[in-house]
Design a protein around this nucleic acid. Sequence first.
DNA 1: CGAAAATGGAACAGCGATGTTCTACTGCCG
DNA 2: CGGCAGTAGAACATCGCTGTTCCATTTTCG
Lengths: 193, 193
Amino acid sequence: MGMDTAVSSTGARARTRRAILDAGTAVLAQNPTASLADVAAAAGVGRTTVHRYFAERSDLVDAIGMDVLDKIGAATDRARPDDGPALTALERICQEYFELGESLAIIFDESMAATWNWESWEEDTEADRALARLVDRGREEGTLDGRLDTDWIVQVLWSLLYVAWQRNRGGDTKHNALSLCLYTLRKSVGAPS
Amino acid sequence: MGMDTAVSSTGARARTRRAILDAGTAVLAQNPTASLADVAAAAGVGRTTVHRYFAERSDLVDAIGMDVLDKIGAATDRARPDDGPALTALERICQEYFELGESLAIIFDESMAATWNWESWEEDTEADRALARLVDRGREEGTLDGRLDTDWIVQVLWSLLYVAWQRNRGGDTKHNALSLCLYTLRKSVGAPS
DNA sequence: CGAAAATGGAACAGCGATGTTCTACTGCCG
DNA sequence: CGGCAGTAGAACATCGCTGTTCCATTTTCG
């Protein structure tokens, strides 16, 4: 009835859409000002096909944003933020987020957020709330540093992830980068000893 | 003799140049793809005047880059990186860098570095070397965490500065943001207790 | 004051990205 | 086999930014 905007009939549409979305994420993560022709080339489709799926550039950017938010949501769920000691749960979240790879750059990049028309962008996701809840819990438990407020801890987590991912790009091992990230996270936001 | 590219005759040229450079830093820090018209408006000069000082966009971007590097160099000197315990010196550096404000975003932003033609950009500045020297010293002294390599510590410093500056923008007190930054820096890169 | 320096603004051409339309090709499924 | 969904690619108009030129005006300074 025209309501099937999410799932398409043949499945070919869905596959192409995913290819464009993934290519778009990869390309725009490296260069937020890349042209749609670049995205099309990376996705292995024609430039007009991109426009067939996303009328305007902003539509593509918004869709990528939503897609990344979905991935973050799924990653957050996998990390079981409400299980066990808060610091341990935070480490699990860190590991899961680290696996998101290129998507991290999308979230972190400001020049992307600048061109974001999207309505429900400023408002918190369920994942945001879960993370905030987790940090709050940790501060009350005493496993996280009470001298640091919740926002700060969340920001530090993201920035450490970003730095670790850059290091990964720079040729270092994934395992190595993640280890440094987790170790530093524990030290910086964990309760002082 | 045409060699006076640095200092100009009247001093009016120097003032205008500074205005454009400062405005350019502020504007491009917030939006790396801002037009030269935006920069001109922010500087309070005509668009053609900008082109009179910087023939191409890349010339302006390069000049801003050099300017920021100069500021970082001066800030590093003020922090006396070779005096006293390494951790204390690193805190002084953190304070000085924090004062650089908008310029931090310029350094941190990748989409800026992408459009950077500039020759001597990859190679280390004297400030970079001084900072690396300081961190090395700290790791040998035992005041910095030997389990973290020098590069990582430097990266963490920059990312904490970036997060703190964002927080400052977000309405928080400078003092508050800097305190959090320094406290977190000590905890994260200081020697484990 | 008066000349030189510096500026603002209009006007223009060029360029690359965007978004649209149309045509022809491919592969899939009934 | 024949129709149909999906696609590529060419062609086109448009738009905003860039870089340049020219001229009138203002500022600076001797």
